[in-house]
Design a protein around this nucleic acid. Structure first.
Lengths: 219, 219
DNA sequence: AGGCGTAGGCGTACACCATACGCTTACGAG
DNA sequence: CTCGTAAGCGTATGGTGTACGCCTACGCCT
């Protein structure tokens, strides 16, 4: 019976994401988001309890963009499924680089994150992982994903920091400066994939379900 | 000839770290640090150009605590050296968990970080890695380290978030809730080690220098 | 059709933040 | 003992998140 809401939650979160994408994390403020919505600052609090919750909505929106439908690969090898899920998550996050710092603190409250995690655990389970082994494998993949996103978007080797490292005195840091120079030859996607392949190779060694069928790990 | 400084840079940075350790990242402000030093807020700006730089000093202090002397292991297998360097870095950061978010943005400006990176690259080089392979391996290790620190200190599975995940509806998220329950059986150090071993195993597969001597990768 | 209660929208205020500017003052060299 | 330098700091500005309370638009009720 009272006055109806003029905004949906989706409108709020996409406005916040638009501010974040367009103006950066430092410019993400209640005032800025409210202004983009054409409201007064305090009106935004009718839709959101705090700035924290607004950030949560952004993360939710970004993570809901992860496509969990693996298509024909869904019945393929579990390693391929892991690789696909990891790549999809990275791609979703990389579309909104300014959001990366928020993912860390708010991912646990996002439904999309949970669905993704459940899918990842499904692939691991099919690979023969259970109990603490599965915990360790899951967290290793998660850690790598999160760390790779961070390194990609605010690291010293990729992005602007690489140039600074490449300019280091070569006599003091011969390897670091050389590596920084080599880094330009490696695209971010390829870099992510190579690191991921290291983890997957490590998992394949541990895997007990398919070990007997895998010639590379036969004794 | 003028009035001498009353504080050293080390006193400034350790005061800032003390505030961070004792009161958390949100409480780290110029006011708080200045107060702990017994100065007015603006006096702190005689020692530091900005808050950013103050954060850099904290990171520098924390990262300088990484012991790069590997002892007898310095002449051992390169995998062991990698493992030791990774564990040392994790330990240094884990001593000051509130500092973890700062590491991401300020690590490139810290000398301790560069020395550590150079040492890590040295071990990789001894393992036969060079060029883009070395870049990929280095960043994979770095990404895992950074991600693991994040997950350990603000993740959903370790820390307080684990309980929330374990309480998820088991029918909607059977694997996630089971994994969250299993997670309590895995100490943080062991978890880190297991994930690290996955990466090292992946590196061993790629390694061309010692592959012929490694029975697990023989064709 | 008209009134009314609910809840949307927002103006103001407060505490806190980083920091620019300029004053005062302690200090050591001459 | 004087004087220049720079340390220390008081004040002010513009930013932030958000608590509180007012006005008012709206849709169900009679």
């Amino acid at each position: 019976m009272p006055r109806p809401r003029s905004l949906t939650e989706a409108e709020v979160s996409s406005a916040a994401l638009a501010v974040l994408d367009g103006s950066g994390l430092a410019a993400l403020s209640m005032r800025a988001v409210a202004q983009r919505l054409g409201m007064g600052t305090m009106s935004l609090y009718r839709y959101v309890q705090s700035r924290q919750q607004l950030e949560g909505l952004i993360v939710e929106l970004v993570l809901s963009g992860i496509d969990l439908d693996l298509g024909p690969a869904a019945r393929g090898p579990w390693q391929d499924r892991l690789g696909l899920l990891m790549a999809r998550a990275r791609a979703a996050a990389a579309e909104h680089p300014n959001c990366v710092p928020l993912l860390l603190t708010h991912r646990h409250s996002a439904a999309g994150s949970r669905d993704w995690g459940e899918a990842l655990l499904g692939a691991l389970t099919d690979g023969g992982f259970a109990g603490v082994r599965r915990v360790a494998a899951f967290r290793a993949l998660l850690s790598y994903l999160i760390g790779a996103l961070q390194v990609e978007h605010l690291g010293p080797l990729s992005g602007p920091g690489t140039a600074a490292l490449a300019g280091l005195p070569q006599d003091a840091y011969p390897l670091l400066s050389a590596t920084a120079r080599d880094a330009s030859a490696l695209a971010p996607e390829a870099e992510f994939r190579q690191g991921l392949d290291l983890l997957l190779a490590g998992l394949a060694v541990q895997d007990t379900a398919t070990a007997s069928a895998d010639p590379t790990t036969a004794a």
